[in-house]
Design a binder for these strands. Structure first.
Lengths: 223, 223
DNA sequence: GACACAGGTAACCGTAAGGTAACAGTATAG
DNA sequence: CTATACTGTTACCTTACGGTTACCTGTGTC
């Protein structure tokens, strides 16, 4: 998730950026209107956080200008609690308004709320050769064929995709799939065999390769 | 537009009701949790405004109870500015939180915002294979046949549609349908069986598939 | 060449997860 | 007040998941 923060108080800004980073929110930062316009021109965000008082103008006018150009949800920050400002902000398309001082967790929650409202994110997809995986819908196809995997095999495939194109070590796999249980080499071997056989039919190129002593990885074999 | 207001301060409540009326917002009013539950049981609203401090309990617990049963956006009112309360409120599905004292116009604006966001999807329809669902009219058809579901089954179907094409985990389903009650695996199994049998006749392709250990999902089976 | 070692395959099978049908208590409608 | 529907409960069935074992294969080392 990425947002645009426009705020001239650099202390507040850096604190906010740090905190939001911990919450998994990436921040593009501008301290003036002009800078904000420049940065944001070719970028789209999950939400925009706008201070009202800016050195080169008024966040409200920025919102007014953007309200029909940009589709991002806007949250206003302001030290002023004046009703007038709030109403004006909402009339320019703001979806939320937070009065300083505020607690950073509240800001984070409200940002997440706005972002989730307006964006239903597309599912994560992974493709390799004729293999196609929808990581959210959990649908796997190879060419026309639909592949159904057992829970363990799905877990393993997810792991491999997450690390693609790097190999995943045997130890890492065992840790992930059999946490805190005794697990032996045989269980691991069986799992690999089963996933491999489900992923490829006789006439198809192999996808699951083991690099001796290093682990296994997804790859198409070029000869 | 009609909202539900739950607030034990009768002075504030009457002022609010008057003001909102001028803004074209009709209000159902309750002063206690119990009353709120009674009034709202068979009514749906564009938004719900909940005071946190109520004579017979805590607005938060009402929200917690409702968060998976009702789909209305909730706005909290509270005299307490404590961050803890706010975060709890948001975690129970609140979409906004207003600290007393507040200006009535701001309340009105925020209510309208919530209501409009929620209603931005009028006439929600869902189709999959020969299944057709009108989510507002709550009419389900498969081919020529009209399907009637029990309340629980409808809830489950709605859930599945909301997440489509992604699966919904057993835990999520149990949380939504039997919030805070003991619920066991058997109730879950029965519900699935009943919905499945209602959705498909013998000659029709299955729509409700379970992915072991991962949940269940709506899907047409491609061969 | 023999041996060790890592990895691969196929078959076996106990079991847990899921599916179904029937029953009963309670709520609901008419 | 009766009939019907809804949902929780139980008992039993089915399946395929995954652990286990036995036996391969290839490669490197002495």
């Amino acid at each position: 998730m990425i947002i645009l923060l426009v705020e001239d108080d650099t202390v507040l800004a850096t604190h906010s950026i740090d905190f939001l980073a911990q919450e998994g929110i990436e921040v593009d930062y501008a301290s003036t209107m002009r800078q904000a316009q420049a940065i944001s021109e070719h970028q789209s965000y999950d939400a925009i956080v706008l201070d009202i008082n800016l050195p080169d103008g008024d966040g409200l006018s920025l919102a007014k200008q953007w309200q029909h150009q940009r589709q991002e949800p806007i949250l206003f920050l302001s030290a002023r609690d004046a009703l007038d400002d709030k109403l004006k902000a909402f009339s320019y398309g703001a979806l939320d308004y937070l009065t300083k001082p505020f607690a950073l967790p509240e800001l984070a929650v409200r940002i997440k709320l706005l972002a989730s409202k307006n964006n239903s994110k597309p599912n994560r997809q992974f493709s390799l050769d004729s293999l196609h995986v929808d990581l959210d819908a959990k649908i796997i196809t190879r060419g026309e064929r639909v592949i159904v995997l057992s829970p363990q095999q799905w877990q393993l495939l997810e792991l491999l995709i997450k690390h693609y194109p790097n190999p995943v070590s045997k130890a890492a796999i065992i840790n992930q799939i059999w946490p805190q249980q005794d697990s032996n080499n045989n269980m691991y071997k069986s799992l690999i065999t089963r996933l491999r056989s489900n992923l490829t039919r006789e006439d198809e190129p192999a996808l699951l390769h083991t690099l001796k002593k290093q682990g296994i990885t997804l790859r198409v074999q070029h000869d």
